[in-house]
Amino acid sequence: MKMLVNVILPIEPFNSLVRSGKASEILGRIIDDIKPETIYFTEIEGNRGAVMIAEVTDVAQIPAISEPWFLNFEAACEFKPVMTPDDLMRADIAKLAAKWYDVHVL
């Protein structure tokens, strides 16, 4: 399953790692290890951040994705399952609506 992972990188220790020249090397190692489908760097909650899509076939993989961020940057990680349009079509929401829609609710 695809997971949207938001990584919030606090100002410290990131600033110190940038100053020491280690931030880029650590980021590269993490990205090479996780191999996200895509990753973008942005601002999240006033901090540096990353937004990535990672394939997670087993929930036991979540620590392998989050621990490098936790241990190296004291980051916070948020995991959200996401669907492609094809995934949504396979969910057959019309069938679910027929099963669960109650005209008396409205």
Results as ranks from 00 to 15, higher is better:
2 K>I: 11
39 I>G: 12
14 F>A: 12
80 K>V: 07
51 V>M: 14
76 A>Q: 12
73 F>Q: 01
37 E>H: 09
92 D>T: 02
28 G>S: 13
78 E>H: 03
19 R>N: 13
105 V>M: 06
28 G>H: 06
78 E>L: 11
76 A>E: 11
74 E>R: 08
87 D>R: 09
98 A>P: 01
97 A>C: 08
5 V>A: 12
85 P>R: 04
63 P>E: 00
74 E>F: 02
26 I>D: 00
96 L>Y: 11
70 F>I: 05
89 M>N: 01
11 I>R: 04
12 E>C: 07
22 K>Y: 01
91 A>S: 03
21 G>Q: 03
56 V>H: 04
14 F>M: 07
88 L>H: 04
14 F>S: 11
74 E>A: 03
63 P>C: 03
49 G>R: 01
56 V>I: 15
95 K>T: 14
62 I>V: 14
91 A>W: 13
85 P>A: 10
31 I>T: 12
9 L>Y: 14
104 H>F: 07
9 L>V: 15
102 D>E: 08
54 A>I: 10
37 E>I: 07
27 L>Y: 04
43 E>L: 01
89 M>W: 02
67 E>P: 04
41 F>E: 00
31 I>G: 03
38 T>A: 13
86 D>L: 08
12 E>Q: 13
49 G>K: 03
101 Y>L: 15
102 D>Q: 04
5 V>E: 14
19 R>Q: 13
24 S>G: 09
74 E>D: 11
46 G>L: 04
106 L>D: 13
10 P>D: 04
57 T>S: 09
43 E>S: 08
2 K>N: 12
82 V>P: 08
22 K>Q: 09
33 D>E: 08
85 P>C: 03
78 E>Q: 08
50 A>V: 06
80 K>R: 10
38 T>I: 11
97 A>M: 07
99 K>Q: 14
81 P>N: 06
6 N>I: 10
76 A>F: 06
19 R>L: 14
17 L>N: 00
21 G>P: 02
104 H>V: 07
69 W>M: 11
84 T>P: 12
18 V>N: 12
94 A>W: 01
101 Y>G: 14
32 D>F: 07
54 A>P: 06
48 R>I: 03
48 R>S: 10
40 Y>A: 07
22 K>W: 01
86 D>H: 02
49 G>C: 05
74 E>P: 00
101 Y>H: 14
68 P>T: 04
76 A>V: 09
92 D>K: 13
30 I>D: 00
5 V>T: 15
13 P>A: 06
99 K>V: 09
71 L>Y: 05
19 R>S: 12
54 A>M: 07
82 V>N: 01
92 D>R: 11
10 P>M: 01
27 L>D: 11
34 I>S: 08
5 V>F: 10
66 S>G: 10
28 G>R: 11
92 D>G: 06
19 R>V: 09
64 A>S: 12
78 E>W: 10
18 V>M: 15
102 D>T: 09
60 A>H: 12
14 F>D: 06
85 P>F: 08
43 E>V: 08
49 G>M: 07
46 G>R: 06
95 K>C: 09
72 N>I: 05
25 E>C: 00
50 A>H: 06
78 E>R: 13
88 L>K: 11
59 V>F: 13
88 L>Y: 15
39 I>M: 15
50 A>D: 04
